[in-house]
């Protein structure tokens, strides 16, 4: 089959991007960022709290980690829910021991189902950001805009009811957005989203929303669950990243290391030690400012 002549038309071949969602800049050309307390590397730990219904939805797509067998997939339902019953508590203990606060990207269903967990997270001073309704709440182009708007508002309302605070940040499932998502998040009053992984510092979309890039390559899902490397290798790679960023920050201004973890993955008995050791070591590094995403966004926004 030969191609239409229009295949060699390039209507958006121009200076800058082939879209207007955000403007281009190089991280090495920007004014140096200064983090609070003279620290040079902001470390942002983000925990995904996920509830996978036993009845997976395939529209617009089935979330990574979702049910795999014929109904009823007790195997994956319970293995995922392990994270909410056990794994997350191990993580909260690890964070408390290291004296660090994190972001928790929670499905709103977690707030309805496990209020004791939400209370413990809030009592420890962690930030809760919105992570859709549950793991059936995926977004992609093709989802009707009214359904997407309703999903975002339902998530916000459920989390606000449970926490008493309106979440300022949003993480999409699988970081997947539609063409409408950025505007719908802005319209719903969010300050930032975490889905676009093209940068290592916050930047602003054209509509004013901020992106706080949550590097997917550094996540436990990518390195441990997908690439099947060990928890120790994951921690070593995060340490290598921190070392590199600390050196770079000494010359170029503040840097950020995002650490995305999942309770049912890194909260297992044989893996949690690697997370504890990593967080303990990073907390002891003089360059590190370990903070929830919202505080990192605020510090970035306050730059002169």
């Amino acid at each position: 089959m030969s191609l239409d002549h229009a295949y060699l038309d390039y209507p958006r071949r121009r200076h800058g991007y082939d879209h207007d969602l955000y403007a281009w800049s190089s991280i090495f050309d920007r004014a140096p960022v200064r983090w609070p307390g003279g620290k040079s590397v902001a470390v942002w730990i983000c925990v995904s709290l996920e509830w996978f219904p036993l009845t997976p939805a395939d529209t617009p797509f089935r979330a990574p980690g979702h049910m795999q067998t014929a109904y009823p997939d007790y195997r994956h339902y319970t293995a995922r829910d392990y994270g909410n019953r056990v794994g997350i508590w191990r993580m909260l203990d690890a964070f408390a021991r290291a004296g660090v606060r994190v972001s928790v990207a929670a499905n709103a269903a977690i707030a309805d189902r496990y209020p004791a967990l939400i209370d413990a997270i809030l009592a420890a001073g962690h930030e809760i950001i919105a992570h859709s309704t549950d793991m059936n709440g995926t977004i992609a182009s093709g989802l009707p805009i009214e359904e997407e708007r309703a999903l975002i508002h339902r998530t916000l309302a459920m989390l606000e009811r449970a926490t008493g605070t309106r979440p300022r940040g949003w993480l999409s499932i699988a970081r997947s957005q539609s063409w409408h998502t950025l505007d719908l998040l802005k319209e719903a009053g969010f300050t930032y989203c975490c889905d676009w992984v093209n940068d290592e510092l916050p930047y602003r979309f054209s509509n004013g929303l901020i992106d706080l890039p949550l590097n997917h390559e550094l996540s436990d899902r990518q390195i441990v669950a997908t690439q099947q490397q060990s928890a120790d290798s994951w921690a070593e790679q995060l340490t290598d990243a921190f070392d590199w960023l600390a050196d770079e920050a000494a010359v170029n201004g503040g840097r950020m290391l995002p650490i995305h973890v999942t309770p049912y993955i890194m909260g297992l008995p044989y893996r949690i030690g690697a997370l504890e050791t990593l967080v303990g070591r990073l907390a002891a590094r003089p360059e590190a400012w370990i903070a929830p995403g919202g505080e990192i966004v605020d510090a970035w926004t306050r730059q002169p």
Binding site: M1, L3, A6, Y7, D18, H19, W24, S25, S26, I27, P60, F61, A140, S141, G142, S172, A174, R175, S176, Q177, S178, W179, D195, W196, V197, N198, D199, E200, P213, H216, E217
Partner: peptide
């Protein structure tokens, strides 16, 4: 948002493939 080629799909997800696109954009920003 490239035009379709009948012999090969570009992005694996509906456009915008946020992770696919922004991962590659990391090269040109960082």
């Amino acid at each position: 948002d490239p035009p379709a080629n009948p012999h090969r799909k570009s992005w694996s997800r509906p456009h915008p493939d946020v992770v696919g696109y922004s991962h590659r954009d990391h090269a040109n920003r960082v």
